[in-house]
């Protein structure tokens, strides 16, 4: 998805993990993915640079679709679709 498309995407679930360092956002994403259905979109907010790389890899490995990351002011918005 393009940055513009992502910016206009309304996620089914938003996980705000900006207050935690790695591996906090990854664990928060793992917890939250169980709360949505296949095909739904989850957005993870994180200010952690390592998480920006971890979550796309984790999502793909676990059979979900990584949609892209948008940089906001001081944090990242990471989008994925549950497989």
């Amino acid at each position: 998805m393009t940055t513009e498309e992502l910016q206009n995407t309304t996620a089914d679930k938003v996980v705000d993990a900006r207050g935690t360092a790695c591996p906090g956002p990854l664990l928060a994403a793992k917890k939250a993915i169980g709360e949505i259905s296949s095909g739904q979109i989850m957005e993870i907010l994180s200010a952690d640079e390592g998480t920006r790389r971890d979550i796309p890899k984790w999502a793909t490995k676990k059979g979900h679709e990584y949609l892209g990351t948008v940089e906001d002011s001081g944090f990242f918005r990471i989008f994925m679709k549950k497989g």
Binding site: P23, L26, L27, A29
Partner: peptide, 11 residues
């Protein structure tokens, strides 16, 4: 604890 968390995230 951090490594363990990563392993658990990977199931």
């Amino acid at each position: 604890g951090i490594i363990l968390s990563g392993a658990v995230a990977e199931d």
